[in-house]
Simulated scan of single mutants.
Amino acid sequence: MKVITFGEIMLRLAPEGYGRFVQADKFTAVYGGGEANVALSLANFGVPAAFVSKVPDNAIGQAAINSLRRYGVDTSHVALGGERLGIYYAEKGASQRPSKVIYDRAHSSISTAVETDFNWPEIFAGATWFHITGITPAISDQASQLALQSVRAAKALGLTVSCDLNYRKNLWSVQKAKEVMSELVEYVDVCIGNEEDAEKVFGIKAKATDVTSGKLNHEGYIDVAEQLTEMFGFKKVAITLRGSISANDNNWAAMLYSKGQALFSKNYLIHIVDRVGGGDSFAAGLIYGLITGMPEQEALEFAVASSCLKHTIEGDANHVTVAEVKTLMGGDGSGRVQR
């Protein structure tokens, strides 16, 4: 049940604590990125996982690779070369002040990668699942072509393909996203997203929903999933339901639409430590649940619980075990000391 992910891993630089960029005289450095976070989460769950990318052939590129290898992610298909590793700066929000992200990823190695950097039949040998996000094709036209080639190859070889839409307004326009993603998702079996992704990428808006006020309408999300399924023939559509109370406190749940039926998870009220990677941890949890044969409701609950825990962990990655997720699923969210 090996899983392959493809995308960009970046250096994340963040002021300490809740400091603002303009205050910072030092930054904490970690590595992360959508598909890399998914691979790492799956490796922590005991699933064989490989991350495919391109990083510069220098010590920073090697450090990014090492950040995945130390947790058991297969990095043997990461190509070396190009000018630089992408960077992003993350400022934590608090209370009514939102978090902010600034990208510095132009001309990164993956943005200039070429077809010959990746042998997809070799990469997919022995794998059953392939995961990508809408971030990768947004990086550059070359990355967009590689993303399309990757899903075509995965589908031709019989893998289940999942895609987290992950619309990023700082990377491309709504028009470009719709054009590119409409072609890419033709090869996708499991579509993952949130209310903004569906609206910005495909123009499908959840009815009677206002995420800024925390008002979510279940019927509206069912309608979104039905429209996505009708448009693209997805086998499953998963939508995360985040009700923002403040930068520190969110309601967190999700819906899974499959075979004409909508399933909803329990809701968690989360006091957030670090929300970056929350969607990636949900995707990894859902993949884990489905690939290990859990009933769909259980797979959904596993995904939401694992993502709930990620919000309590510093950095991009979800450093939790299957046992910890199942404890929360079982109703123990007390946070009492485990001795």
Score class of each variant (00 low, 15 high):
Asp117Gly: 08
Leu269Asn: 08
Val322Thr: 06
Ile132Tyr: 00
Ile65Gln: 12
Gln175Cys: 09
Val211Met: 09
Lys200Thr: 00
His218Tyr: 11
Ser307Met: 06
Asp223Glu: 03
Glu226His: 07
Val188Asp: 02
Val30Ser: 15
Ala24Lys: 01
Phe27Ala: 07
Glu296Tyr: 13
Ala253Cys: 13
Leu171Gln: 03
Lys26Gly: 09
Ser111Ala: 12
Asn44Asp: 05
Val322Arg: 05
Ala49Cys: 06
Glu35Arg: 10
Gly86Arg: 04
Ala154Val: 14
Trp120Leu: 01
Gln96Pro: 14
Leu328Lys: 11
Gly233Asp: 09
Lys236Ile: 11
Ala36Cys: 08
Asp57Ala: 05
Gly243Asp: 02
Ala225Met: 08
Glu226Met: 07
Arg339Ser: 11
Arg69Gly: 13
Ser173His: 02
Ser140Pro: 07
Tyr268Ile: 10
Asn170Met: 15
His107Ile: 14
Leu146Arg: 00
His271Trp: 03
Cys163Gly: 03
His319Arg: 13
Leu241Ser: 01
Ala36Glu: 03
Glu195Tyr: 12
Val3Tyr: 03
Gly34Glu: 08
Gly293Trp: 02
Leu68Ser: 11
Arg70Gly: 12
Gly293Tyr: 05
Leu228Thr: 11
Phe51Tyr: 11
Leu40Trp: 02
Ile245Gln: 15
Ile9His: 04
Ala303Thr: 01
Lys169Ala: 13
Cys308Met: 13
Ala284Pro: 00
Ser111Gly: 02
Val101Asp: 06
Thr136Arg: 00
Ala79Pro: 05
Asn166Gly: 08
Asn37Gly: 09
Gln145Asp: 15
Ala253Ile: 12
Met1Trp: 03
Gly134Glu: 01
Pro15Gln: 06
Leu165Phe: 12
Lys176Cys: 07
Gln145Arg: 14
Ser53Trp: 07
Leu159Gly: 04
Glu314Cys: 10
Leu256His: 05
Leu184Ser: 06
Ala59Arg: 09
Phe124Lys: 02
Lys54His: 09
Trp252Asp: 07
Asn166Trp: 00
Ala283Met: 13
Tyr221Ser: 08
Lys176Asp: 14
Leu85Ile: 15
Ser334Val: 10
Gly278Arg: 01
Asn166Gln: 05
Asn66Trp: 05
Asp332Lys: 07
Ala299Asn: 04
Leu309Pro: 01
Met181Pro: 00
Arg339Val: 14
Leu42Trp: 04
Gly126Met: 15
Asn250Thr: 08
Glu219Lys: 10
Leu165Ser: 11
Ile102Leu: 03
Tyr103Glu: 10
Ser109Asp: 11
Asn166Asp: 08
Lys92Ala: 08
Asn248Gln: 14
Glu179Leu: 13
Ser258Thr: 12
Thr209Trp: 00
Ala50Trp: 07
Trp172Ala: 03
Gly333Leu: 04
Asp104Pro: 07
Glu8Tyr: 02
Ala247Ser: 14
Val114Asn: 10
Leu146Ile: 01
Leu184Asp: 10
Ala94Lys: 13
Ile222Gly: 07
Ser99Asn: 12
Val174Ile: 15
Ala156Gln: 15
Glu122Trp: 00
Leu146Gln: 00
